[in-house]
């Protein structure tokens, strides 16, 4: 644990859809600068939880604090301090690389000078100089993903939420993508990431494993592997999932 400062604090979060409980009494804390993995099978309730933390959905009950602000009352303040990248990585296909950067930086209220500086910095960092005036739909998937992530943190948020950011890309690109995540974490941005790739889980500082709406385990990958007497995260996950 790099830091004791809590940036996300969740107590007894419950989210119900009619008679279905998507999040059943979740309690966890996330500390500043850590990479927090949120694991679970499809339908385990990961996306529901992440949507609540981002203010896209409201909780049924529970105490939630994100980036130091209350989820019920201070949604606007939270929005200014978080970044979000969804499964669909959300760039405008008919806009160029540069236009996408400019647009997203613009809606976070960056000044023109800041936008210019940030855009150039980002383009250089990702090596996109050649394609900066090309439409997004002409880029390969891996590039789009890296660009989407860089745009999600362009306003230097305290926390960035990544909802299955690496779906559908090859392991090498995934590896490169995680380099970016490490860099962001090093610069002090807390990374909250959901995934169902178990190899990715091992890149996280701490992980929580969700099964049927509940958190079944929460610890560092090493501790979990020891605790469940497993060889890798895959086995940990299978043991937890079979328990029920």
């Amino acid at each position: 644990m790099k830091n004791e400062e809590k940036v996300i604090s969740v107590k007894n979060l419950v989210k119900k859809f009619a008679d279905f409980t998507a999040n059943d009494n979740l309690t966890f804390d996330v500390y500043k600068g850590e990479i927090f993995g949120f694991l679970g099978a499809n339908g385990a309730g990961k996306t529901t939880a992440i949507r609540i933390l981002c203010g896209l959905s409201s909780p049924t009950s529970g105490e939630l604090n994100v980036a130091g602000f209350d989820v019920y009352k201070q949604t606007e303040k939270i929005k200014q301090n978080i970044g979000y990248m969804s499964q669909k990585f959300s760039l405008y296909e008919d806009l160029t690389v540069y236009e996408n950067i400019k647009f997203y930086a613009g809606i976070y209220g960056l000044s023109n000078a800041q936008i210019k500086f940030k855009a150039n910095e980002l383009i250089n960092k990702l090596g996109l100089q050649e394609v900066q005036n090309k439409l997004i739909n002409s880029l390969p998937l891996g590039w789009k993903q890296k660009l989407a992530f860089s745009i999600a943190i362009i306003h230097n948020p305290k926390i960035v939420f990544l909802d299955e950011p690496t779906g559908g890309v090859d392991p090498i690109t995934r590896r490169q993508f995680w380099e970016l995540i490490y860099q962001a974490a090093e610069s002090g941005i807390t990374v909250f990431v959901t995934t169902h790739y178990m190899d990715e889980a091992e890149y996280c500082d701490r992980i929580s494993i969700m099964v049927d709406g509940k958190i079944e385990a929460l610890d560092t990958p090493d501790n979990l592997i020891k605790k469940y007497k497993a060889n890798n995260m895959d086995e940990v996950f299978l043991k937890l999932a079979r328990k029920n």
Binding site: G55, K79, S86, K88, I107
Partner: peptide
Amino acid sequence: ETGTMEILLVSPLK
């Protein structure tokens, strides 16, 4: 459809 609406809703835009 493209998922950009979510990003807009998560942003500080009202």
